[in-house]
Amino acid sequence: MKKIFLALAVFTIQLGFSQKVTSLKIEKSDNKELSAELDKDKIALYNSNFFKFIAALKSSDKKTMEGLLSPKAKEVVTDVVYKKLSADIDFNKTLEVFKSGYKSTMDGKIYPMIQYKYSDDKSSNPQNIVTAVFENDGKILGIKPKHKEVKK
């Protein structure tokens, strides 16, 4: 008899705590549809800032580099990051646009992004890519060089 009351109590408690959705509203998002590629005016603005940053990185001009970074990036970038970045980018080679588009971040925001490849790499899938993420005003949010290891 105790088992029956226990089972009945469990089902009653579950029924008491269950919730019923009485009204559900679907809100329209403010996000506008983004095209897969950036337009040429945006690419020109972002390229300009990127190459100014690369020139400042090459000459170790910290003031110019910080002027091109977004406030979010300034919070996390240190001298160690600048040194690592300058070691990972080959300044003797010319960078050119490989792809452009948008990148979503962990906070759910979407930012413009351009991937650069070295001009001497003619393959359709380049070995070394430098990805730059920008804020809409052209400030640099992040730069990440990526080197693919060649399998032997």
Rank of each mutant, 00 (worst) to 15 (best):
K2C: 02
K2P: 01
K3D: 10
I4G: 12
I4Y: 11
L6G: 08
L6K: 07
A7R: 09
L8N: 04
A9V: 07
A9G: 09
V10S: 13
F11M: 14
F11S: 15
T12H: 04
L15M: 13
S18C: 12
Q19C: 14
T22D: 14
T22C: 11
K25C: 08
I26E: 07
I26C: 04
K28S: 06
K32W: 05
K32M: 12
E33A: 10
L34E: 09
D39Q: 01
K40R: 10
K40V: 06
D41L: 11
D41C: 06
D41H: 09
I43S: 02
I43M: 08
Y46G: 00
N47D: 14
N47F: 08
N49Y: 04
N49W: 02
F50S: 01
F50Q: 01
F50C: 03
F50E: 00
K52I: 03
F53M: 03
F53S: 02
A55Q: 12
A56T: 02
A56N: 00
L57S: 05
L57I: 08
S59N: 13
S60V: 08
S60Q: 13
D61P: 01
K62S: 11
K63T: 15
K63L: 12
G67I: 09
G67D: 15
S70I: 01
S70E: 02
P71T: 10
P71F: 06
K72F: 13
A73C: 11
K74L: 15
E75P: 13
V77M: 11
D79Y: 03
D79T: 07
V80R: 14
V80A: 13
V81W: 13
Y82F: 15
K83D: 15
K83H: 11
K83G: 09
K84W: 12
S86H: 07
K93Y: 09
E96R: 07
V97W: 06
F98D: 02
K99G: 00
K99R: 10
Y102W: 04
T105D: 15
T105L: 15
T105V: 12
M106H: 11
K109L: 13
K109H: 11
I110N: 14
P112Y: 05
M113Y: 10
M113N: 13
M113E: 14
I114R: 00
I114A: 00
I114L: 00
Q115M: 11
S119Y: 05
D121I: 03
K122C: 08
K122R: 12
K122E: 14
S123N: 05
S124T: 04
S124I: 05
S124Y: 02
Q127F: 05
V130W: 12
T131H: 03
T131L: 07
A132E: 03
V133E: 12
V133G: 10
E135Q: 12
E135R: 09
N136R: 12
N136C: 09
D137F: 08
I140C: 02
I140Q: 01
L141Q: 04
L141P: 00
G142W: 01
G142P: 01
I143R: 01
K144H: 14
K144Q: 15
K146V: 15
H147P: 02
K148E: 05
K148V: 04
E149L: 07
E149H: 06
K151S: 11
K151A: 11
K151W: 04
K152G: 13
K152W: 13
